[in-house]
């Protein structure tokens, strides 16, 4: 192989490595959960799971940040689809009963997002 070919091949490889290398940075490394007893000390370490993937839609940023303050977003992913009325009641409950620090504008955005990604038309509207 001559010099020109060699340089071209190296260049192509460099692009390829860059492409795959960038992808690798996005992978979540789950730390290991542990439990140990040392003398009289009992210690548990639990790390949060990789956050579930969510579809892009208006309100996603508010949803993933505010809703994850107090609990994992799996609380939402494990739910079936619900009518808007139910999602609205759940978001209201978080704010009124559990004192989630969410203003009314953000609350509306979050509710709209939930309806968009996990909404269901009620059987009898």
């Amino acid at each position: 192989m001559n010099k020109q070919t060699a340089y071209l091949l190296l260049f192509i490889c460099a692009i390829w490595i860059a492409a795959f290398g960038c992808k690798q940075k996005q992978v979540y490394q789950q730390p290991e959960n542990t439990f140990a007893i040392k003398g009289s000390m009992h210690e548990l370490t639990l790390y949060p799971d990789a956050p579930p993937e969510f579809p892009e839609h208006d309100g996603k940023a508010e949803f993933v940040s505010y809703c994850a303050i107090c609990h994992s977003l799996k609380y939402i992913t494990m739910q079936p689809a619900f009518p808007a009325k139910v999602w609205n009641a759940e978001v209201t409950k978080m704010i009124v009963k559990f004192h989630a620090p969410i203003d009314s504008v953000t609350a509306r955005k979050i509710t709209a997002y939930l309806v968009a990604v996990k909404g269901k038309k009620p059987a009898n509207p």
Partner: peptide, 13 residues
């Protein structure tokens, strides 16, 4: 690089 990606099986999917 594919092996590098797949060996971490803790992505949500």
């Amino acid at each position: 690089f594919s092996c590098g990606n797949n060996s971490n099986s803790n992505t949500p999917a």
